[in-house]
Amino acid sequence: MLEIKNLHASVNGSPILRGIDLTVNKGEVHAIMGPNGAGKSTLSKVLAGSPEYEVTEGSVKLDGEDLLEMEAEERAAAGVFMGFQYPIEVPGVANSYFLRKAVNAQRKTRGEPEASSVEILRAMKKAMAFLEMDAGFRNRPVNVGFSGGEKKRNEILQLLMLNPKLALLDETDSGLDIDALRVVAKGVNSLRDPEHAFVVVTHYQRLLDYIVPDVVHVLVDGRIVHSGPRELALWLEEHGYGAIKAGDAGDAPRLEA
């Protein structure tokens, strides 16, 4: 589904991603771990089409289509969703209005008929109940004054409403209490099926107990330097990034070639 080859990206001329290769197939869940500042958020944002970054080399294909040629809104309509590490507050725009506009904008771009307000409201109510969100969040301005955990839950609400084929979840688990973590994982797992794929950025192997990945990658200094099975996350928790950073993965679990 997603094919990234030798991706380089920079901000204001300084390189951050330095040759990312990553293939994610339909139905798979990939976890990306790595030290602070390694480029994990940058990778997610570049894939989602943030205007902040300049791609200097490489290619990204989504189901064979050149993703880098598309505007952010076109990527969203094509099925790419990024859950923000730091969701943005939008004063004056109600959550429900925002979701309605987003759902229908995507449908319009895809040439599908728009959904009625009633349909969207019904879906929203259902998703909010599933995520154990208070109905009051419908009419509150997007993320304004939400606690850290509430913002993350709101990202998952958007995920459920937009039902993308590829979800990039950037530290959706950070700042969550244990119950919220369970709820967020429940949300993500509800979409897991052979048609959806996920790239989950996290610092904590704990999330991966709930959202069990097929592959774990370690991103250091703008490159994926090691990939392994689910057990790699446990190994990292014990050993840290030191050895892998130094180029000596030792007995770290790795993918069979």
Partner: peptide, 10 residues
């Protein structure tokens, strides 16, 4: 950017 990332044209 947030709105665009959710599919709303610029």
């Amino acid at each position: 950017w947030y709105l665009r990332a959710r599919g709303i044209p610029k």
